[in-house]
C-alpha cells in the first residue's frame, strides 16, 4: 500500500487553503532502467478532495506530474475542525485516502 499523504488545511477570511503532499513515484512509462528496459508507467490518474462530504475538487492527473506531487488549492467556506478528505487512484488500481482537520 502507498505511503500516507501529508494534508494541511487552514481557514482564513472565509476561504480554506488546503495543501497536500503525496508520496508517489509518478513513473511516466518513458524512462528506461539501467538494463535498458522500459520502466512501466505508474502514476496517479484521479484525485478527489472533500470538505466534510462535499466534493470541493476533483482532478485528473497524468504522467507529466512530478514525483511526490504537491497540490495546493482554496475553496470558499470551511470552519475550524471540519474534515478534509483527499483520495487518489493510480493507473495500477492502487489508492490512498487520508484526512485532516481544518486548523
Amino acid at each position: 500500500m502507498a505511503n500516507p499523504m501529508r494534508i494541511r488545511a487552514a481557514v482564513k477570511d472565509g476561504f480554506t487553503e488546503v495543501r497536500v503532499l503525496m508520496s508517489h513515484v509518478m513513473e511516466t512509462g518513458q524512462r528506461k532502467d539501467s538494463s535498458g528496459a522500459l520502466v512501466p508507467a505508474h502514476f496517479i490518474t484521479e484525485l478527489t478532495a472533500k470538505h466534510n462530504d462535499k466534493v470541493v475538487l476533483s482532478a485528473q492527473f497524468g504522467p507529466s506530474v512530478s514525483t511526490n506531487p504537491y497540490l495546493s488549492f482554496k475553496f470558499e467556506g470551511g470552519a475550524k475542525g471540519d474534515k478534509i478528505v483527499v483520495s487518489w487512484v493510480d493507473n495500477k488500481g492502487d489508492s490512498r485516502s487520508d484526512e485532516a482537520q481544518i486548523a
Binding site: N3, P4, R6, R19, L21, S23, T67, N68, Y70, S72
Partner: peptide, 14 residues
C-alpha cells in the same frame, strides 16, 4: 515556490 511543499516531509513521516 517549492519550499512550501518540501517532500522531505514525506521522508520525515516515514
Amino acid at each position: 515556490m517549492i519550499a512550501d511543499g518540501n517532500p522531505a516531509e514525506l521522508f520525515e513521516m516515514e
